[in-house]
Design a protein around this nucleic acid. Structure first.
Lengths: 340, 340
DNA sequence: AATGGGGATGCAAAGGTTTTCATTTCTTGA
DNA sequence: TCAAGAAATGAAAACCTTTGCATCCCCATT
């Protein structure tokens, strides 16, 4: 308990060498049964816990993983999506002895492009979460630090885990077509974001696969906020061939769009169907309950932690790029046009 | 860049001793202008960053703070309240060089009641966030590790920051009374939670201060979920002297209660007024917009970080217990009974 | 009784830093 | 030119571990 309980004090109390104490604690080497008992007793009585810094210095291993958010911790905390990812991370790390060093990109980067603590050896590996710009990912890739991109990007030569947004969107389009929809438009943000791009690509592929025309006007995206997107959508709804179904790049956008549509007198799903992505907690209680795509967020976290741990263990293992399968969850926001 | 860039390599390249390199880097001691330039050059060319473990070992300081959530990381991530607290934490730590070691209580505690990493010296101090049971807080208090209870509890002899829920509830009651309400009931959870207790006490004090009777039936609380609470409320609404106003212990409870009330045909606020607590992001957009209490969450985070840093710096300073002032935000969920 | 072997234990180095204190070098005034 | 004082530099210890290797002891086999 005292401040100065080091391995020395234990050794002195147990009347043996520090090497022996170390061996007992780590279960290495050979230690006689009696000695072991004495040491264990001393450890207990002194409340000794090996000092992490001394150990890390010697072992060149910190048992700490950097968890870096983009753009900031607060931003990620705001998104309920990541709560479950955290759950997966937490559980996987549970029995490994590893801890997470939390950092928001903006707050942790001073001079270079990579947070100091990485190069200073405070962590054994990094998990990057959020829509990191390519430029930043690039800097990380050049380091030799084990690295995994979690729900972020799969285009770099490092381990990564994403949800399979491509297949998901194909499934969505097929689902809509099965329900008689032929004029479908996608709503997306216009920003550098791998996942958004992936979903757009999947959406377009879905159209083609179902024999619908896929062109520039199939996707409405706007760099700016939700309002702008809705303005474009509304213009389209009043045009000759108005869409009967909307696919949004995530649930948040779906919900606000739905609100605005209702406010403007469009009935959902009677007049217009809508499908989201993410299965956020509020989506099931929306009015009408939102059809969407469920990604196993917990598994996302588990896979991420697993990958970086494996990379630390075996730096030369082949790069793993995981695209987790998704589940289309059908609720009440899509109308069957055929069954009229 | 190479793996083995230590202070030695810099010293060799700059043709000086490691002591001098250390002095240059830390701006301590005296170093000649020329030598300084040479060392700096070597540092730059080698891309040298001092090793955190070596430094921590020697300085007995890790520049890391433990951020412990109860019951788990995921649980806290789910609550939008904490996103802004994180913002405050992040910003305050920004220029201090300190990092956060994240841990969920459930996941990080194995044998003892306190996570290993604390006693192993992986952190210089701890921030506890969430409704920790007293038993656990007690274990932490016995440690000599700097500790701050953040939005958790203020009843222990350690630094703490909470929002002043007591005064806030007094303000709420006064506000309701000013609007002609005389029959007011509070909805709360029945669990060990300092903040809830504080708000209940404030509510009762508010009643007394305004000359209303405060008794056991003034507060409806139930160990179980929202449904149970609502059942009790509904019974009360159908009794002889039904409440005209409801005060809930947080916004979430307010919103679901509101939904159920509306579903049961009660009009809010025409028939029944309601006030929440927390000013969650969704509360402003509720229907009607919810009157509630805003706590400066960011400041909560700032104060917490600040306090633990000060405690590390000056272990003997007097204990600080902060109760941050709150702001009553009046929206549309309270009806003025006087102006009929 | 001597030799060999195996199990138990300890010594000392290494890992990267900071810091104290001694030593060296420079400057300046007489 | 010398001495003294100030400024610059370096050697070594300390922080706490782990681990390779040497040592020691004891028992069994020949």
């Amino acid at each position: 308990m005292s401040d100065s309980t080091s391995i020395f004090s234990v050794a002195k109390r147990a009347n043996c060498s520090i090497a022996t104490v170390s061996n007992v604690i780590n279960g290495k080497g050979r230690v006689g049964a009696n000695t072991r008992k004495t040491v264990l007793k001393a450890v207990r009585e002194l409340g000794y816990q090996p000092n992490s810094m001394g150990r890390s210095l010697r072992m060149r291993r910190t048992e700490t993983l950097g968890l870096l958010f983009y753009p900031s911790c607060a931003q990620i905390f705001r998104n309920p999506f990541y709560a479950e990812v955290m759950e997966g991370l937490e559980e996987t790390l549970l029995n490994t002895g590893y801890h997470l060093l939390l950092a928001g990109y903006e707050a942790s980067v001073r001079s270079s492009e990579v947070p100091d603590f990485v190069q200073r050896g405070k962590v054994d590996g990094m998990i990057l979460m959020g829509a990191f710009p390519g430029k930043i990912i690039h800097s990380f890739c050049e380091l030799s630090t084990p690295l995994v991109l979690l729900d972020s990007n799969a285009e770099w030569p490092v381990d990564s885990v994403v949800s399979d947004g491509f297949s998901a969107e194909v499934k969505i389009v097929s689902h809509l077509v099965e329900n008689g929809h032929k004029e479908i438009v996608m709503l997306a943000y216009n920003m550098e974001d791998y996942n958004i791009d992936l979903r757009i690509k999947g959406f377009l592929a879905g159209l083609e696969k179902n024999g619908l025309r896929a062109n520039a006007s199939s996707v409405i995206h706007h760099a700016l906020a939700h309002e702008e997107i809705y303005t474009c959508l509304k213009a389209r709804l009043n045009s000759p061939n108005p869409p009967t179904a909307i696919v949004t790049v995530n649930d948040t956008l779906a919900i606000v769009t739905e609100e605005w549509l209702k406010k403007d007198g469009f009935r959902v799903p009677d007049q217009i169907s809508i499908v989201g992505y993410d299965d956020d907690p509020f989506s099931a209680n929306a009015n009408p309950p939102l059809s969407t795509v469920r990604v196993n967020k917990k598994k996302l976290g588990e896979a991420g932690a697993d990958l970086v741990l494996k990379r630390i263990e075996t730096p030369d293992r082949p790069i793993a790029k995981l695209a987790l399968p998704t589940e289309l969850v059908i609720r009440k926001s899509v109308r069957n046009l055929a069954a009229r």
